[in-house]
Design a protein around this nucleic acid. Structure first.
Lengths: 400, 400
DNA sequence: GGATTAAGTCAATACGTTTGACTTAATAAG
DNA sequence: CTTATTAAGTCAAACGTATTGACTTAATCC
């Protein structure tokens, strides 16, 4: 009678799925390539001119694309390139980190319109959520002031926080945020903001940002190694962010590796936390600027940490190249650009791997965003991607 | 004028894509769940009864499904379950290994109908291809004799061989098959057989087999660690086999790990090749039975190898759990079941990882196929999957 | 100034899913 | 035993979306 619940099957699709996909494909093409004419779009997407015209008309009516000046290029009727309308959609991104939370508002093309941050006390999530809701409310007010259409066009709230998610019986050691994990955060924030919420770990958020706005734009296979308080890998596999069965894919910080006989998680050696420890800095204070200053003054302890961390990072790059076979690995992090550049340089030469091939169009390892706001940006990019990027799941019918 | 070639975009879709997907979804549901009525299918796929009826009618006309006896269960009109027709499609699978090649013929549900194997000389691919083409031709003749409709319904030729693929300047050491890599194998076999050919590495093929017929059936996130001559991981991510940007994802055998100071590829320690070396067996001879006998006689050298290999395997399992966050890891290999069982047992207890959670529906690590024919089976499953499994790429329009 | 080329539109058509009413066939309740 | 209820499955019309081929427009080339 109700044993049909046990039937495992994928979802079917219908014409609306078709249309939804095609609209997303067009928006994606405009995002990656900039303005394109309808004829260009038809060729690039394998759709007919007529279909593209219909879809573009819809998108223009919805305020997501707009025509630019007519372009004459050679023989034939001049073309009308269309481009994304930045004000076509907005999203709020929220980063929850150990000691700080950041909220950000972006538009459809990724312009950052509002930023705000607040300290998080160690009182745990109950008080933390109050702070966060206040922060988000402020950001929304500011956004609304700048862009009156924003509230109507808010596509959601993206949340990024350190993983791993859903551990049972996790020790609440300083590396994890177990009390936050146990708290019904998504439900609370969804109720408190009235927005659709999505969750990623911080490395995934960073990869999302790199894909929408950074060096991974247009790449379908990329791994973003994110060095934050911990270290993790955000995975772009087959054109989509991959999160694994429980949202924990890419948690490379927890990978054990041999360290002179003992097995240590990578996170304990290559992460900002390990740097803070090495420097004797209190992470709860303004660690970013403390490190920034030491880097600028070229403190020898920075070099010590870099050479140790680079050794481990070299191994991590080798590992993700070997296991994921990406087009490129992107190193990003919430530390100062100088520090990240030095770390990148110290990681070279990379270990030999399958990725070592002639005529690579992109480098094996490249620097990505180095900005404390990168994760919040990626968090904000998530709802935009969910609403506007081509994905398999967007084609399928919803249950019910 | 022709700069539109530079426009990067995903492909659009149309009603035929919709229908193709829905048909695949129905076949997939029948494969995973066994016979289902049209009403069951409608509920499971979120399609309407009417749509399912139309699709099932098409599938029945195409000879892919057939009705079973009417089933009375409770109130209401009795239902008619439909099931896959084994003779609805056939495929040939080909494994090319270092010293041997195996060909296999399967039907739609994975029944093995024909097997054949041949030794491969070390003369390289030119003579090898002649042997292979002969082998395939024999298998097709046998298949045709058993199932007269087979030739009309052959969906393709799947090839599995050791990776990695597309290395430039690869040393032709005993672990790789560089001369085979350089040879235009796919083109030659496509031309020689007139079939559509597909290529996977052996670990991927094993994962394909486990997904279609083994312990990964119905799982959308699984990693299959395959111990063959080398060692590799086949990745089922998000319901599809993942091969990476160049077909080399999961080549864990090439992952370097610290071994008392030195960095060694995993492959040099946990692989049949390392066992052959440890035992002083010539892999070109009948190594399978030589090992089989030593295992049955409980030769102490087997235990030595197992304990060493298990240590490394434990680490490999930890690594793929950490990086891929799968529902389960499946250990399979072309060695005797006894050996694989002992290796599995020696790998326990597993290292702590994110996968350690209460109420797991499937074990963290489980034994998969232990059969020299598993890879060939997976190779044969690939064309079936390409033709009949739901995948994103199957929805999209073809270029042109 | 006419030929050619390319962008884009128009109107009719084809395809596949959906909708709602209907039929069939079983069990449950009175 | 009769009637109500439930569920599977069908029918035919409607709907949404992409496609087709002819047509228009507007530029460059010769």
């Amino acid at each position: 009678m109700d044993d049909f619940r046990l039937v495992r099957a994928k979802s079917g699709t219908n014409q609306e799925g078709t249309s939804a996909h095609n609209q997303r494909v067009i928006l994606d093409a405009l995002r990656i390539n900039g303005a394109l004419s309808r004829a260009d779009l038809a060729r690039a997407t394998n759709l007919t001119k007529q279909t593209v015209s219909n879809l573009v008309e819809n998108l223009e009516r919805d305020g997501l694309v707009r025509p630019q000046d007519v372009v004459r290029k050679g023989r034939g009727q001049p073309s009308t390139p269309y481009c994304l309308v930045p004000e076509g959609a907005f999203a709020i991104g929220l980063q929850i980190d150990r000691h700080v939370t950041r909220a950000i508002a972006v538009d459809l093309v990724g312009n950052v319109l509002v930023r705000a941050e607040a300290k998080l006390s160690t009182d745990g999530p109950a008080t933390g959520v109050r702070i966060i809701l206040g922060l988000i409310e402020g950001v929304r007010r500011d956004l609304q002031r700048q862009r009156p259409q924003a509230e109507r066009r808010l596509s959601g709230l993206g949340i990024a926080m350190p993983g791993p998610f859903g551990l049972d019986g996790a020790d609440d050691d300083e590396w994890m945020m177990a009390s936050w994990q146990a708290f019904p955060l998504l439900e609370t924030l969804a109720a408190g903001t009235g927005l659709e919420v999505g969750l990623q770990n911080d490395a995934a958020a960073c990869a999302t940002a790199e894909r929408m706005l950074g060096n991974a734009r247009g790449l379908d296979h990329a791994v973003c190694i994110y060095i934050g308080y911990g270290i993790g890998a955000g995975l772009i596999l087959g054109g989509e962010l991959y999160s694994g069965a429980h949202g924990n894919a890419g948690e490379i910080g927890m990978a054990l590796f041999s360290d002179g006989g003992r097995q240590t998680p990578l996170e304990h050696r290559a992460s900002m936390a390990s740097l803070y420890q090495h420097l004797g800095i209190d992470p709860a204070a303004d660690a970013y600027h403390a490190v920034f200053d030491l880097v600028e003054r070229d403190d020898p302890r920075i070099g010590e940490w870099i050479s140790r961390a680079a050794t481990d990072l070299r191994w991590a790059v080798h590992l993700v190249e070997t296991l994921f076979d990406p087009q490129s690995v992107i190193l990003s992090g919430g530390a100062s650009e100088t520090l990240m550049r030095r770390l990148l340089a110290a990681t070279e030469p990379l270990l030999p791997s399958l990725a070592e091939r002639k005529g690579r169009p992109v480098p094996r390892l490249q620097l990505g965003m180095t900005d404390p706001w990168a994760v919040a940006l990626g968090a904000a990019a998530e709802p935009i991607g969910r609403a506007f990027e081509p994905r398999f799941s967007a084609i399928l019918k919803e249950r019910g």
